[in-house]
Structures are given as C-alpha cells and as structure tokens.
C-alpha cells in the first residue's frame, strides 16, 4: 500500500522549485504537525535524563543540603559496590525474563485453545481477559491479602477444602517471595500475550493449513512448520511489549513484598534510595546505570520491531 502511494508520488511531476527558500518552507509545513509532539516528548522525557546524568556526578543529600558539590565518579563507585543494587539488577532480569517467558507460553496455549470453535467461546475469552483489566495495585492487593494470606487466603482455603483440617498451610509470600510476585504478574500478563497471539493465529492463511492437512500432515506438523513460523513475529511483539512494561514494574513489588525478601527490583530500589535515603547523587547514578542497561536491551528490541515494520511496508 505504502509502496503504491510512493510510486504515485514519484510519478507525479514536481512543480519546478523557484528558490531554495520555497522548498525549505514546504519542508517546514510538512514538519509542523509533528513538532508539538516531538518537542513535548524531548522536553518531558529526555531532559530529565540529562538532569539525572548531571546530578549523578554530584554530592547531594537532601538531608545535608549545604554539603553539595562535584563528586566525580564517587556515586558510581558506590552504586557498583552496593550489594543491594547489584542484587536488584539480578532480580530485575530474573523477574522480567520469568514473567515474560511464562506468560508467553501460557498465552500461546490459551490462544491455541481459543482458536477453535466450542460452546461459550466468547464468554471464556472475556473471562480470560479479566485479569489484565484489574488495576495493577488492586491486583497486587488482591493476591497479597485475599489469595496468599496464610490464615484466610483463598489458596490455603482451597488446600483445606481438598485435604481437610490438617492440610499444609504454606506461608506463600515469606516462603517463596519472588515466585509470589511473579505468579501475580503472570496472571495479569498472560491475557495480554494471549490476545496478541490469538490475533496472530486468526490472521494465519487458512488455505496453506488446509493444503497441509490434505497432504496428510499431523496436527503437530501443522503447528511446528506452519503455525509457529507465522506466529514468530507476534511472539516477538508480545515479548518486546511485555518486557517494556514488566522491567519497569513497581506496583507488584511495592505492594506484595515492599521490596523485602530479595524481591527488590531496580525501579523499587531507586524509588527507595530517593524516597527514604534522600541521597540524590547515588539515586541518580543508579538511574544512569539503569538507562545504559536499557539502551543496550532497547537497541536489540528495536531491531525486532523494525523488522516487523519493514514487513508491514513490504506487504
């Protein structure tokens, strides 16, 4: 479609440019609608990072405001030798990878189940979407108090139902803190993955599947050699978008464990450094480290999206 339009545009005789000025003016007319959004984004999202970079090189604690000055790389040394921050990096990676991977796999299974006709399909789809539509803080509170609570939470309640009065009653949050946070996030993000993958399944060319079936391909062969390659870009899209959101997760960690028991991820740790310790310099240095890490991951991720975009342009 785009290619057609460009071809038409090229074929059209261009009006002879009278002066360079007219051409420049025309270019600015074209750019004008873009500028408000672009300037707004640069000011609100990029300038703070520049400021963070500057503050990260300063000695600045809000509890000791007179002792402010240039600190060089001291804050960075502190950040890299701080065991809390190093473990936060590990936790963030583990949390993001686990949640994205498990949600993708579950989302794929659910999408395959929903991609077939059965009685009440619309209702099941609606029920499956519900977890994603619960406000994240509300979901975290729900899991912490109504499900995980060892005395009256639903999980231990179900165990009592199944095994009677002497059923095991595990302490879910203190016993497996990171898994507890991950489970609540998987519950919320699986519907997201399912929706994207289901849309992918439904855009699958049916004639190829039919042809393969007629040629005697098994269900597994159809899935492995037709469905999965077709779904690849949808899986990548789900993984990319899921990572963007989950790597920044704050609500679940803040609510369920308050960052305790080894579940403090980077967003929570930086929030805490800045909110409780008031060490602005060190919090900023941590922020810069996170940004550098994100840029590395983002460069890779953007390549994935750009391949999607190229396909769209070609198609």
């Amino acid at each position: 479609m785009t290619a057609v339009r460009e071809a038409v545009a090229r074929a059209e005789p261009k009006p002879p440019a009278r002066t360079g000025q007219v051409k420049a003016a025309a270019r600015w007319v074209r750019r004008a609608p873009l500028l408000p959004a672009l300037i707004f984004t640069i000011v609100v999202t990029q300038l703070p990072f520049v400021a963070t970079l500057v503050i990260s090189l300063m000695r600045w604690n809000s509890l000791d405001p007179t002792n402010r000055g240039f600190a060089g790389v001291d804050n960075y040394t502190a950040v890299f030798t701080d065991p809390d921050l190093r473990s936060a990096i590990g936790t963030t990676v583990l949390l993001t990878v686990t949640v994205v991977f498990v949600s993708l796999v579950l989302g794929l299974v659910l999408a395959l189940l929903l991609d077939r006709k059965f009685a009440g399909r619309g209702l099941v789809r609606t029920m499956l979407i519900a977890p994603f539509l619960v406000v994240p803080v509300a979901a975290a509170l729900l899991w912490k108090h109504a499900l995980y609570n060892p005395e009256y939470g639903l999980l231990n309640g179900v165990l009592t139902w199944l095994f009677g009065a002497d059923a095991p009653q595990p302490e879910w949050i203190s016993g497996m803190p990171l898994i507890a946070v991950e489970a609540s996030l998987v519950w919320q993000w699986t519907p997201f993955m399912m929706l994207i993958l289901l849309a992918g399944l439904q855009s699958r060319p049916q004639d190829a599947v039919e042809a393969a079936r007629i040629d005697g391909a098994t269900a597994w062969q159809v899935f492995r050699y037709l469905t999965l390659p077709h779904l690849r870009q949808y899986l990548e899209l789900g993984a990319l978008l899921g990572s963007i959101y989950i790597v920044q997760n704050f609500d679940a960690v803040f609510t369920i464990t308050s960052g305790g028991l080894g579940t403090a991820n980077l967003p929570y740790t930086i929030y805490q450094t800045f909110y409780q310790a008031h060490d602005y310099g060190q919090a900023s240095a941590a922020g810069v480290v996170v940004v550098v890490g994100s840029i590395v991951i983002a460069t890779f991720a953007l390549r994935v999206v750009s391949s999607l975009l190229r396909e769209e342009v070609r198609g």
Partner: peptide
Amino acid sequence: KKVEKWSDVLFFFLSTKMLPVVAGLLP
C-alpha cells in the same frame, strides 16, 4: 504527508518508552 526520516522519528518515540521512568523521577 511524510516528513523525511519518518521511520527514525517513529523509533525515537518508541525508544522513549524503553527508558525506565524511575531514572528520571528525581529531576
């Protein structure tokens, strides 16, 4: 009515979503 380098601009917008908001929180 595409500006020149429109896909670069598009990716600039997306890349801002990948920078963690928490890093800009203090400023």
